[in-house]
Design a protein around this nucleic acid. Sequence first.
DNA 1: ATGGTAGGACGCCTA
Length: 267
Amino acid sequence: MSLTIATWNINSVRLRIQLVLDFLRDYTPDILCLQEIKCPEEHFPYQAFHDAGYPHVTINGQKGYHGVATISKLPIELVERREFCAKGDTRHLSVNFEAGGLTVLLHNFYVPAGGDEPDPEINDKFRHKLDFVEEMRGVPAATGEKTASILVGDLNIAPLENDVWSHKQLLKVVSHTPVETEAFEAMRKAGGWVDLMRQAIPEPEKIYTWWSYRAADWAASDRGRRLDHVWSSPNIAGKLTAIEVLRDARGWDRPSDHVPVIARFDL
DNA sequence: ATGGTAGGACGCCTA
């Protein structure tokens, strides 16, 4: 059977609900993982997703900041809303679902951005980001004969040279500093996770999923970064059939600064 | 080297 999973940092689900509904109508993923929904449960637009054919919705949200939601056509079962760094932030949600005879554990993450100064001694937000990545070692890829894992989300780190518009110019910019990228790759490998975007689209091809709002012309300058990721356990990595990064979404009306990433599997 | 934009909630934090 085919399985399509999408991930998208939406930067306020309430402000951009119509954009999300248009995306679901046009791309019909089985499951969409949103980040930065920026609302608590009581303000989440459940009805709109239900009416769009996505009745199974699980969220971990808070007022004003952060927040993740997993929206599905298929039945999903909440596994955990894990708290990282004892901060009380809503940055993780995991669910289980059945597909192709497998029980799939799907993690939806929003990793802290880390502030502007890449020095944990003077910037608490950067310290928090590094601590968060270390704590993600506690989320390895669960795998077995009848189980598999997928991890998606805005991980706020662009690990490879071709994940940014200029490797040299971003070496001291939070999201691409060596301390972040090395910790990130070490954590991913220790967890047994496969980077599916790079499996499908190897270097040196550039991949960007985010372009700053601050650029005068994002498309002309094209100073993007790959901050959004799709990982899986090795036992389904070979079942990936396509990765699609919807660059055009950055040019939609009142866009998010991130674009959707779609992963297709044949399980 | 700097400042540029966006969202939530309405002064200022986060990204």
